[in-house]
Amino acid sequence: MIINFTLNGRPRKMDVEPATLVSELLRETLNLTGTHVGCDTSQCGACTVLFNGDAVKSCTLLAPSLDGAALTTIEGLSATSGSNRLHPMQEAFHENHGLQCGFCTPGMVMTAVALATRNPVPTEAEIRHGLEGNLCRCTGYQNIVASIMAGAVAMNAPAIGE
């Protein structure tokens, strides 16, 4: 079936087999392999993407549901294409050592961006609660929480002219 959607800010028209998960579409067809699959029970959150701005697990979303929607993946997060500029949340993860092996990182960052968009000044407890759908085995979460604290501040800081 034909679906029309916005992928990382650009319009996209695709012919998809309905029984296709968005995680599969991204990884196998679109070569956007930053969205990772870490489980088969919708528990780990490594595949989290932004669907109309909401954090959702792309392993539990069907490709046909993309029709008419806007999808953002980790590859499309930093706005300036072709540059090494990071999104403030990515920058905060870098500064605060919020990642180790990197596998859960895309899902963590996407969840964090959605969280900080909804809640610009999250408390530590709110961040920890907000991460209940994302597993990390490396960091013990401490530096991820610190990263999101810092990233939320940076995301919501008034833009400094340049």
């Binding site: 959150g45 954090a55 959702v56 697990k57 539990t60 969840t111 209940e132 759908g133 994302n134």
Partner: peptide, 9 residues
């Protein structure tokens, strides 16, 4: 219920 991603769907 579930987690934020579950609540979003």
């Amino acid at each position: 219920i579930g987690d934020p991603a579950v609540r979003n769907r």
